[in-house]
């Protein structure tokens, strides 16, 4: 523990300049925001920063609508998790299948190419017709948003396995199945992870968009309600929550990747 503390301190000392500039740039932002809020009037209203932060922390205990902000966040995250996990599992399976079998690629890829240019958001009206106004239409949108990235990356990963490694494994007596599970799959993992990372952030964006466009709860709903009531403070509270969750999700993915793909890092 002490050692970690020491290294953190050393880094901070080395990056004193960076730290100073972070303080400067945040201070500038806050001051500009404060000044803008004092000058703003009429239609363009800008609440003061302090007011927004206060409202943000208040909303953790005082509900907006029926739920506190933490509950809203939980609802949104649960949808993302469901859509993302299902899409990841199916995407990996289809992607790897396309990567190892040219026949499967020929069958699946054209269908994929037809659907791919349509942004997932454009599916929202159809998804509402199919799945109703509740959670399932959003889960479907999240599924569509992440499925593409996971599939493409798994495909690229499985296709770009170094043939020398496959040769080496066969030489060492590995069966076809073992070549698949012990060579093709692990060597695709960095590609798959790159796909999962994009997919998760796109999922989060799609979830927010779907909630903004139509929902009864979740963090996106908070800002839509704010818009409908002309409550800009509430919009900003919702945006902060969205940003914090987005940041946490991408950090989580990076940590997991660091663990699983340790071998892939370049040691210097």
């Amino acid at each position: 523990m002490q050692r970690i503390g020491k290294t953190v301190w050393k880094r901070l000392k080395a990056n004193r300049q960076t730290l100073l500039w972070i303080v400067i740039s945040f201070a500038t932002l806050l001051i500009a925001w404060q000044v803008a809020s004092m000058l703003s009037q009429g239609r363009v209203q800008i609440p003061a920063p302090l007011e927004v932060f206060e409202a943000f922390f208040r909303s953790m205990t005082v509900p907006i609508g029926k739920n506190t902000i933490l509950e809203h966040a939980g609802i949104s995250l649960w949808r993302v998790l469901l859509g993302f996990v299902v899409a990841s599992v199916i995407g990996m399976a289809i992607g790897i299948l396309m990567g190892v079998s040219p026949k499967a690629h020929a069958v699946i890829n054209p269908l994929f190419e037809f659907v791919r240019p349509i942004p997932p958001i454009a599916w929202i009206p159809l998804s509402i017709l199919w799945f109703g106004l509740g959670s399932s239409n959003k889960i479907f949108i999240i599924f569509l948003a992440s499925f593409t990235y996971v599939t493409i990356n798994s495909y690229e990963g499985a296709r770009n396995v170094d043939p020398k490694l496959i040769g080496a494994a066969r030489m060492l007596g590995a069966s076809r199945r073992r070549v698949f599970t012990h060579v093709i799959f692990p060597s695709s993992v960095p590609y798959i992870f790159a796909g999962l990372q994009i997919a998760l952030s796109v999922s989060w964006a799609a979830e927010v968009a779907a909630e903004i466009i139509y929902s009864q709860n979740g963090v996106g709903w908070i800002i839509t309600m704010g818009m409908n009531n002309g409550n800009i403070t509430q919009i900003m509270v919702g945006m902060i929550a969205i940003g914090v969750i987005g940041y946490l999700l991408s950090t989580l993915m990076r940590v997991v990747e660091g663990r699983l793909c340790r071998w892939n890092r370049q040691e210097t």
């Binding site: 494994a169 030489m171 060579v183 060597s187 892939n264």
Partner: peptide, 20 residues
């Protein structure tokens, strides 16, 4: 006709599995 463990190969560049 096919590779077999009775003939081991050492390649020019490393063919070690980087994830092991």
């Amino acid at each position: 006709h096919a590779p077999s463990p009775s003939r081991g190969v050492v390649y020019q560049t490393t063919s070690l599995f980087p994830w092991l």
